[in-house]
Design a protein around this nucleic acid. Sequence first.
DNA 1: CCACAGGACGGCT
DNA 2: AGCCGTCCTGTG
Length: 299
Amino acid sequence: MEYKEYKGYRIFEKENGIIIENVKDFNLVHTFECGQCFRWTRESNGSFTGVVRDKAVNVLLEGENLIIENATFNDFIDLWYDYFDLGRDYSEIKRVLSRKDEIMRKAIDFGYGIRILRQDFWETLISFIISANNRIPMIKKTVEQMSRKFGKEIEFNGKTYYTFPSVEKLAEECIESLQVCGGGFRCKYISETAKMVRNGEIDLSLLYVLDRNGARKTLEKLPGVGPKVADCTLLYSGIKYDVFPTDVWVKRVMEELYFHRTASLTEIQKFASDYFSELAGFAQQYLFYYARENRIGTN
DNA sequence: CCACAGGACGGCT
DNA sequence: AGCCGTCCTGTG
């Protein structure tokens, strides 16, 4: 059968989709339900449907074959290769982290198929501003409603989907108009952040130049962006991998399993930086998924 | 009806 | 610098 190649992957083009062979270290549930993204929904056959940039797609994993419906070989090069972080050797990351301790071994054993998605910066930023003091089902709902109201309509498999709204669109909307999406007190942050980004009041190119702490401080200039939101945005849009986003679950798992006592956020940050160093972001992801799914530290 | 779950922010020390 | 009350919404 005819196939094309890109960076070591064989890609088969089929009717309205592509198949990528030999995708290792990947599990759709682990990846889509580990708290890093909000726009993928699980279908009854185990596949996931979601909107990325201006495309709605369905993704299915059959063994090591990744099947993307509504994608072409060019889309793979432009988007999907980076989005699914397919250039990274997660086996090696897991090997290194597993050598650290028994806790990491357990967490990795539990979430072995997590890949950190390289998501759109703007969507990630706004999604995690919405995530502040909020729960995942509510975050999903708000992001969905904002897309429906302010995004562009797109079609896939006879259904209508909506792209995530642009900077300009969110900047021109009044707070009252944003409020109907269920963002609550976060809507004024969304509005002000959108205006600051639109007006170029923040130099986003700095994020790629500065180190972790510098990038974090830069993002924290935006309203609604504190340490946790900044770290999540940097990690899930693939800008920095040595951050360690510390929410209540990560705090709980660190206190319960590493510190065996209460620990401050700064203390946890320092530990993660020293102990996991450049792999902190990956360690955090395995720990978060392990802690939340198993409700570690809640009793 | 109330208690609770979630981070950022601003005022206080 | 660290502590704490407040912000909004849905669920048990």
